[in-house]
Amino acid sequence: MSTTLFLILCLNGLQYGMLLFLIAAGLTLVFGVMGFINLAHGVQYMVGAYLAFAYVQLTGSFMLAVILSLVTALILGLLLEHFIFRHLYNRDHLDQVLATFGIIIFLNELAKVIFGPATLSIAPPEFLSGSIQLTETLRYPIYRFVTIFAGLVVALGLYLTISFTRIGMLIRAGATSAEMVSALGVNIQRLFMIVFGVGAMLAGFAGVIAAPIFAIEPGMGDNILIVAFVVIITGGIGSIGGAFFAALLVGLIDTLGRSLATEILSTVFNPSFANQIGPALASMLIYILMAAILVFRPKGLLPAKGVS
């Protein structure tokens, strides 16, 4: 294991972590502030990717597509909130799971009807499509650096908004006691709508920036949703800071684990045995991490204040 390979793996882990953070940020707020289980959050990630594809076809410009996709994802999120989710806030979790699961199936099929079942892709914008020479044999795509940077910017923006603005204060208060906030004359319904819309937009944004790296296909959000849930539970439900650190942790452990598990095991066991169980063990690592953290810190790494 050379140092450069290790460095590359860390960069990849960071980049994956940032992507997870963008998805988990919205999920943790919706879950934490509203106590609402939104399984359809992953499908909003897919919607973002398909929107980017459609707008790139339409306008030919990636940057324009990013902006248009964000606006559309926000509008779609608000529409979903207005017509469906609003009616589920006071229902129990089972109803929420059923309704949002229905939305997953509906949107996955809709994507297939509109865009066809085949896997699609878009190219990264021209000025970001190169790669940086790190060593003689190793290059790292510029686009991936940009996604890390974009994730950091969003994280910083969210941190500042939640810590220092009036709306951030209301979100924190809503997470602790929604009824009390409502009793003080705050329009909690509108607050929920904003949180939900922004959450949908962030998931859409994750889909947009992931589209040039991963392929676009129906159901692409289903797997990442599970990992996003691992992130918010590990980080502490309702906590943006927790989601940030947990996302990085999960991203790094998953990426490093997949490369190193087989190698480490083969120093102890014979190579073919290590080859058999290495990949299986690597894909379990993040769940083992979650279980371990729940044992020692049942509320997660950085629980939101006042959450009981």
């Binding site: 590359i8 990849n12 994956y16 290059r139 990426t255 490093l256």
Partner: peptide, 13 residues
Amino acid sequence: HQDFSAELARIST
């Protein structure tokens, strides 16, 4: 599998 970056890093070295 979604992200092949870890594998690609191994391939390149």
